[in-house]
Amino acid sequence: MTDKWKQLKQWPGWVVLGVVAVALLAFGSIRESGPRTSEERVEEISKQLACPICDGESVFESRNTASVAIRIQIKADVSAGAMGDDDIISKVAQVYGARVLLVPQATGIDALVWALPVAALVCAVAGLIVVFRRWKRAADTVPTADDRALVETAIREGLDES
């Protein structure tokens, strides 16, 4: 049983695990959760818009009259069914300006907020690779005869003291 269990933990068991995991992920990813309710659409849209007159709250969170008015407008547009989520967001932005967009645009200087994190991650990973290579080169250094003699002496002394 122990040997079988050990064998199972080697490649065959891992291949089965990989296949099952990928199959489950694929099945779960393509499975539909059913249509969104209109309230869920309103929630999703209003979470992407900032309250135009209060500090640091989205239209979804805020109870301010301006936010309430925008929510009513979003509800009406969602109920009408003619516009997509992005169209409704653009419509609100046309009235209140781009400052109500909580998702920064990917154009002009605004695109930096998307690009810089990716650049930071790439630089960090590249830095790690460089450092590991340097460490590996250092680790690959062949010990000299003096080094070996030093080690042997140290071991001998250690054993004598014990």
Partner: peptide
């Protein structure tokens, strides 16, 4: 940190207000 201060950077550079919110 970037998402928190980015509106300040844009305002300083272009005198324009933007928001970076939870979806980002």
């Amino acid at each position: 940190l970037l998402g928190t201060v980015f509106p300040l950077i844009v305002e300083a550079l272009q005198d324009r207000q933007i928001a970076v919110g939870p979806p980002f």
